[in-house]
Design a protein around this nucleic acid. Structure first.
Lengths: 244, 244
DNA sequence: TTGCTACTGTGTATTTTTTACACTAAGTAA
DNA sequence: TTACTTAGTGTAAAAAATACACAGTAGCAA
């Protein structure tokens, strides 16, 4: 691996959607006392790494994502760059850095990326025992400035989802309209009228019904839809306001 | 001055509004042959500089702005970070760097800032003979990836101005509704109905009429308004969609 | 097999918002 | 005094957003 640039990192806020809740993927950070083996602290961080020399920052983010979720080709967009030299203020962070990365510069500028994954396809627990999903409204203790990062990523997502069809990245390829509605409700923190929601979806040519129904549910099975980016790209000029 | 960080810079896209046009402030870059004194090339760049060690990136941007316009306390917001290691591709850029900054790293990540100034207060030509205003739709030859930066800053501004009251940063403190309308039309590239525009403005409590009229114009003088951020902060929950 | 549960799917009337549109008013300059 | 230029104003029609209730169907349990 190429040497990494001391002063520049990327951090990926990875969102997933499951059972009507918006979740974020976090990595557990546990510092042990070298001598006694006692745990000094436990907290969580988002996924990040330094940018390598000659590496595009987008590629650095993709690399982090690949490592943490096992997937590439997933939605990824830069949302903010964090350049406060005082970002490392907690005692936990100082302990962690001096134990693990004694050679890294104190002043690290980090580019934050917002990533959306279909969490039915990602099972991080089986691949990386220290990563797990956390509901965005019930986060554990976080390291560095990652609480702020997540809050900002969420603001970004809220605005983004009202202008562009990124919500589908969080759903399986085939989804029902109720799933889609739940997604919007969870992200925007509102409740929407079902009939009005479906009226709007009906006008969007890029949300396409399939001749297929849900199976194995203990109620009337719902019709299944797909999102067509192709159709969207051809019709977006007509309708730029999405669903809300 | 503290040493600067090799790999991180900020670039400020400074927008001004004048005579119904949106302009951007650019610095002329002219490379001379050391021996003959002949001009090897001439082009333009936005205003940028490396981030200093221990300096907040926002402060770095403010520092650049202060240097180039003489003002502080002006609107400034990060819009995108440019991290393509291939950003320097033109022969002109290579010549310039090897002549002027032989020690700087090849891979520089730059944080782009969008800045809005009341250009009636800024006279860069008198302070810095190499800076001048250019209409955004008629830009000269640009160095580095600054054409892309300006395009992105403009996209950012277009979206931003539809959600938040940043347009007033481009106008004098006291302005007429026609000036405001011209501003929106110039930035969004649309034409708006005057009566409907004024109807909307009338609903916005934070755009406040003064008992004062334009003077010295060869037509019916217009009433003068101010923007009150104070009132806006207290009422924004009611109306988040601005003017369009 | 019957009934219970849980979620799907559908239309209309009302209110609100957006749009389109044309003439008079007031000041300067010739 | 006239011509020119921009300011300032209201209404009707169309479109969009909102509020709202009941029948349909699959699985499951009694």
């Amino acid at each position: 691996m190429k040497p990494f640039i001391n002063n520049i990192s990327v951090d990926c806020i990875i969102f997933g959607f499951d059972s009507g809740r918006l979740n974020v993927l976090l990595t557990k950070r546990e510092l042990e006392d070298e001598k006694t083996g006692n745990i000094i602290f436990t907290d969580y961080t988002v996924q990040g790494h330094h940018v390598l020399e000659g590496e595009h920052i987008d590629d650095a983010a993709r690399r982090v994502l690949k490592d943490k979720t096992g997937f590439d080709n997933i939605y990824l967009e830069q949302f903010h760059t964090f350049g406060d030299p005082g970002r490392i203020q907690h005692e936990r962070d100082k302990l962690w850095i001096s134990a693990k990365f004694p050679t890294v510069a104190a002043h690290v500028v980090s580019v934050g990326y917002c990533s959306l994954v279909d969490s039915t396809k990602v099972k991080p627990d089986t691949q990386h025992q220290f990563t797990s999903w956390w509901p965005v409204d019930k986060l554990p203790l976080l390291g560095y400035d990652h609480a702020e990062m997540i809050a900002r990523a969420l603001d970004f997502l809220r605005i983004k989802i009202q202008r562009e069809p990124v919500g589908f990245e969080l759903l399986p390829e085939k989804f029902t309209l109720s799933q889609l509605q739940n997604l919007y409700e969870a992200i925007l923190g509102v409740s929407l009228d079902r009939r009005n929601f479906r009226k709007k979806v009906g006008q969007m040519k890029f949300i396409i019904p399939l001749n297929e129904k849900q199976k194995g549910v203990a109620h009337k099975p719902a019709q299944v839809f797909i999102f067509s980016r192709d159709v969207y790209d051809r019709t977006k000029k007509e309708k730029l306001d999405i669903l809300v």
